[in-house]
Design a protein around this nucleic acid. Sequence first.
DNA 1: ACAAAAGTGTTTTCTTTACACCCATGG
DNA 2: CCATGGGTGTAAAGAAAACACTTTTGT
Lengths: 245, 245
Amino acid sequence: MTNELIQNLSVDCVVFGFDTNTKTLNVLLIKRYLEDEKTNQPLVDDYVLTGYHVYQNESLDDSATRVLKELTGLTGQYKKQFKAFGDPNRLKNEKDLIWVENQRFNVRTITIAYYFLLKTEDVDVSNNTYQAKWHPINQLPKIGFDHKQIILEAYEDLKTKCLSEPIIFELLPDKFTINDVQDLYESILNIEIDNRNFRRKVINKKYIIPLDEKQVGVSKRPAQLYMFSKDIYQKIYQKSYLINI
Amino acid sequence: MTNELIQNLSVDCVVFGFDTNTKTLNVLLIKRYLEDEKTNQPLVDDYVLTGYHVYQNESLDDSATRVLKELTGLTGQYKKQFKAFGDPNRLKNEKDLIWVENQRFNVRTITIAYYFLLKTEDVDVSNNTYQAKWHPINQLPKIGFDHKQIILEAYEDLKTKCLSEPIIFELLPDKFTINDVQDLYESILNIEIDNRNFRRKVINKKYIIPLDEKQVGVSKRPAQLYMFSKDIYQKIYQKSYLINI
DNA sequence: ACAAAAGTGTTTTCTTTACACCCATGG
DNA sequence: CCATGGGTGTAAAGAAAACACTTTTGT
């Protein structure tokens, strides 16, 4: 079998990045721009998710990994396939049709959507091939295709999942403060959390390990740094059967 | 556009049914059987999920609904798209290749997997076109393709989801006893639950409504019947932000 | 009257929530 | 010495867990 693209199948990647400085949860989007050849008027000018067709000999997961690597250079980031989008009309608004025709791909394309978790600081966005930019999840720009819906569904999944699994640490640097963790939860969930109760809860976890280190270069009292131990987490993990309906 | 099948795309349906009598959670599987034309020896003889290719003008959800209807005659059942399976080698063990060649479909088929929740009693399995049979989730027969994996992942999703959403009632008749609910949780989660604590918890929910009715035709003390009100549930539903990692 | 499952209360423990001030550091 | 965010404890309320006997019904 030759290694061709599967014309009607793609992956799309919702790349979430947390910015510890501004305390915002962001999505990495690429520019979609097309001009009229004669008038030079922009025909399409908005943002979309990064994505690409799947190769014939490639698994869906590998495909998503490849797309992320091409966009960011990163590998080994947390990744989750969260939904397939395949409505027959999903690429059929006016701008999308212009774009699709220009790019010569199938209008009935099914996309397998993934989301990734990483740190904004890990991506050099300054001279990115795709003109990728971070956008706060709460201030999304004009977005093409059905990608806004895809982003929002990814975000819902993230919100649910971060309550029951320690995926939050994928969005933080290896060394973080308790307040970083709180800020992150507050950004994702859009809620306020009591600092004392939160600290107690987090610090009591055996897999949150205090380091012999404090913040440096901050113009205030430097905070204690912690790390997350996945090993310890997995060792002490106990499935909860608490029914909460 | 003609209404053709999309050759490399299918949906597969994991149909869960709870049997209130035997107190078992079951999966509906269809027979896969093929004989050698000359020797009449069985070449393939096992079970698979029901599934079919998606039509060009059909959404993924509609496709799954159609497949369920063809199998069971039922519509309007609880349905969830839970994962896409698209490994390039997913249909490539020996029996699968024999089957695939016989059925002339693409070996690189991506399937969008759904699960459905219903009551075993709602399906007339006796003279089913597909020789469909209920199989207890804990005693699955020999299963073809990658469908065992698909079933197990559906089951994992169901286990998680039934802890935080009232989907359990999709598996029960409209009128049920508290012990029915407990039996169902115990079957799904494979755990034992304290009856007194469980009753208290469930009966206190405003959306669990006691009826002016008791069981009839049972050879023991007849139990109080209840119903689940989705309306009330949605009205009083409050998103929980409890962090439990 | 007996078998079989339905139904019932209390206590202990754990978890969550609410709440306000002092501390350490860099500038 | 001051501004800034870091860090701390206690009490009350609510939820979960542990636990054994009585009641109702059909046969």
